[in-house]
Amino acid sequence: MKNFRDIEQLSAYLDGQLSPSDSARLESRISSDPELDSVLSDLRAARGILRKLPARKAPRNFTLTRKMVGLKPPLPRTFSFFRFSTAFAAVMLMLTFAANSLLPRISFGAAAPMAAQESLGVGGGCTSGCGGGGAPDALAATEAPVATEAPLVVESPAATEAPVVGLAPLATEVPPSASENTSRVAVTPTAEMSVAKEPEIMPVPQDQPQGQSEAVIPSAWQIGLLVIVLLGALIMFVLRQSAMRKWK
């Protein structure tokens, strides 16, 4: 058995892939070496058998359809314009809905603490008569969270009526001293505030539904955008259908 290098040379020689000098050298070796000649004959026979194999014809046609290769009909240039404008209008429409539903809530959430601070300032009675300088302001600021709970007190008539009667004299007792006033406010702030701000707080819950009902983006804009979206979709559908018809 010859080494693989010889067999590779013989195989290439069979196919005429050796250079003329290599071919001449191999031919001289073949003529002097019967084993090499035998291997060459075997390789030639093996190649001849393979080449003798009957060629099989395709049992069917392998031609491709547009569906098989995922080809789509060529669309007119206007199609891309309608696609962009429809998509843009759809996005804008969604943004208007989002703006109309979210912005009033955000503005109400920002207005509530301001209303509470205003009501606390009035309820503390320090704006004019307390004379405590900065102390009442600081107190009002610290008590702001309590003030936001004030409407709960206002909602129950039993709770509001009782302190009103009891605290009326207290309000008249304010003038004696500023320090007394501040200490009383510190002890019973909620009751006093609920009484004092009662007329100011009431409008806040009334304003809330008004704020929600007011649309930031007018509905006429939304209707316009909706019409653009629907029209764009319809035109795109018609363009696609006509392109498909032409293509077929």
Binding site: S11, V39, A45, I49, K52
Partner: peptide, 29 residues
């Protein structure tokens, strides 16, 4: 070149098992 030589060599060995099926002109040396 290398793969073809190896493939022919192996085919030669394999086809020896089917010698009687081969046409006389292709009988392996």
């Amino acid at each position: 070149k290398s793969r073809l030589a190896r493939a022919r060599l192996r085919l030669r060995e394999c086809l020896r098992g089917f010698e009687e099926l081969l046409p006389s002109s292709f009988r392996l040396e």
